[in-house]
Computed example of a mutant assay.
Amino acid sequence: MKLATQDQNFFPEKIIDKFRYLKDLGIDGYEIDGKMLVENIEEIKSAMEETGIEVKTACNGYDGWIGDFSEERRKNGLEELKNILYALQKIGGKGVVIPAAWGMFTYRLPPFTPPRNKEGDWNAISDSLLYLEKVAEKTNTSIYLEPLNRYQDHMINRVADAREYIEKNDLKHVKIVADFYHMNIEEDNILVTLQNNKELIGHIHLADNHRFQPGSGSINFKQCFDQLRANRYDGYLAIECRIQGEDAEHEFKKSLAYLKSILDC
């Protein structure tokens, strides 16, 4: 297993400087914004060659969710996701992280009644995934479907929800993102969920129980990493979190040291 990270506010702005900074930190991979990748592919390839930092996954960087209530936004998002997958192919990337939606609707807050019924949700997401499945097959990449917690999305909250879309649509190029923060809210037992879905979990997102940096909350990451080892998971663990503390860079480095220490156990 290797460590990757998404961007943080204190990272350098220039692409080559970001990659050099990550190399100095001893991080293996960079989970890149999809739009940034598409618009700067040659510069990113050059930075990868110089530093050895891998870009295996993209996250964000597109407009329109795969489960968007607006058909125009949904289809626009699919075209942008297609471009991201083709860009990933050019740099040897593995796939793009995609939730059903984020912040569009939740049953936990008013108005409580969504503008579309559950059958409509299923049809929209399935149509999107079947479209992206064909693109992923052509580009030898994957779709990493990410369940979000009930306060951020109403359609795919648990790993079992994502699994249902994969199995009922017979999707071969769609895997599941196991995000410890979301699983902490939604799953009865994170370790059991990791074990029971080991053949479909293709990517990991790291944040602690309160969404801040790993090691600052209550999740037992050593147990989780031990379970992933038992599952023979050999992919990336991508840090996707906010930073708690007055000195964000210091706290990030402290969390990184913590993660490395339990990875080396």
Rank of each mutant, 00 (worst) to 15 (best):
I125S: 11
C265E: 05
R150Q: 06
L237V: 10
N9G: 11
F105Q: 08
A248W: 02
P115K: 04
L237H: 03
D121T: 02
D170L: 08
E71R: 12
Y258N: 00
I176N: 13
I15K: 07
R150A: 09
E49P: 06
D33K: 01
I204V: 04
F105D: 03
R150D: 01
V159P: 01
F19N: 08
K138M: 10
D127T: 02
D24Q: 03
N231K: 11
L259N: 00
V38H: 05
A101I: 07
V174H: 13
I166C: 06
M36Y: 14
E246Q: 15
P114T: 00
E186R: 12
Y151N: 04
A47I: 04
L145E: 09
K82C: 07
R150V: 08
E249R: 13
N197K: 12
E240C: 13
A248T: 14
N123H: 05
L191R: 06
R73K: 14
Y62G: 06
E164L: 09
I16G: 00
T106N: 04
F69P: 08
F180N: 14
V177L: 11
Q89D: 06
A230H: 03
K222M: 01
L81R: 11
E146L: 13
E54D: 11
E80P: 15
P99H: 07
R158Y: 07
I243D: 08
E164S: 06
S128W: 02
Q227Y: 02
K138H: 10
R232C: 04
D28S: 12
M155N: 02
E43I: 06
R150F: 09
D121A: 02
P110N: 05
I143A: 06
G52S: 07
L132S: 12
Q6C: 13
G29D: 04
I190P: 09
E50D: 10
L130G: 03
R232F: 03
W102H: 01
Y144G: 03
V177A: 12
G93N: 07
L132T: 08
I84N: 11
A238K: 04
R158S: 02
L22K: 06
K75A: 07
T5S: 14
S255C: 00
R242A: 13
Q244A: 01
N40V: 05
F252H: 12
G29P: 01
L200I: 09
N149L: 02
G92A: 09
T141V: 06
N220F: 02
I243W: 12
L78Q: 15
E187P: 09
I176C: 02
N40F: 02
A257H: 00
Y236A: 15
N140H: 09
M1I: 12
F19T: 05
D63K: 14
I201H: 08
Q195Y: 09
E43T: 09
H250R: 15
A160Y: 01
Q195W: 05
V97Y: 10
K118P: 00
A100F: 10
I41F: 02
A87C: 03
I98L: 04
